[in-house]
């Protein structure tokens, strides 16, 4: 049988092996409600070691962070009907007594600065102050559409862990932005 020369510029076997280590679910590509629905349902299946509470926490965190990638990624596809689907990567991992949920996507440097500032504020607050911050932001937001920042506060409250953020420059204008959170298998 003829081989396809330019099939991949990386080894799929190595890629598979890399994902074998502690990774329960990984996805890279465009995100919309259908993808969210499929992965959301799979979370229930792959998180068997966690209690119901941990499962529900991962689901809630996934819903907020995946939607942020969908809406705010600088890399996107447009469907025939004109919908914009943000592209990004989602990974659910399992490390000892905790799950980790990581999302990453390309962002414009100018857009991401305020988000990083928000994350730093979130990480500096204890639980009570974080709840107060959520109340304040929700009050300020009213019923306006953009609620990405309240989503991040919600993620930190649900995970009961800081937002582990990383920014890697990919060009003068853009960077790869990732947020990782840890969720204990036997939560509060």
């Amino acid at each position: 049988m003829e081989k396809i020369d330019d099939k991949y510029d990386f080894s799929l076997y190595e890629y598979h092996n890399l994902l074998q280590q502690n990774i329960l679910v990984s996805y890279k590509g465009p995100i919309d409600e259908r993808i969210m629905n499929v992965i959301g349902e799979n979370i229930e299946l792959v998180t068997n070691d966690g209690n119901d509470k941990a499962k529900s926490k991962i689901f809630k965190i996934f819903m907020e962070l995946a939607q942020n990638v969908w809406l705010y990624s600088a890399e996107s596809l447009s469907t025939a009907s004109g919908r914009k689907l943000g592209m990004g990567t989602l990974v659910i991992g399992e490390f000892g007594d905790a799950y980790t949920f990581v999302t990453g996507n390309v962002v414009r440097n100018t857009d991401i600065e305020p988000v990083i500032e928000k994350c730093e504020i979130i990480n500096s607050l204890d639980r009570d102050s974080l709840r107060e911050y959520r109340r304040e932001q929700r009050r300020l937001a009213g019923t306006k559409k953009n609620s990405g920042n309240i989503g991040l506060i919600q993620v930190a409250l649900t995970a009961e862990s800081p937002l582990d953020i990383e920014l890697t420059p990919v060009s003068d204008e853009e960077s790869f932005f990732s947020i990782a959170v840890k969720i204990k298998k036997t939560g509060r």
Binding site: F59, K60, Q67, R138, A141, K145, S147, G151, Q154
Partner: peptide, 9 residues
């Protein structure tokens, strides 16, 4: 379950 966008409403 409700997401944060719902929580404002």
């Amino acid at each position: 379950y409700y997401n944060t966008s719902t929580s404002k409403w």
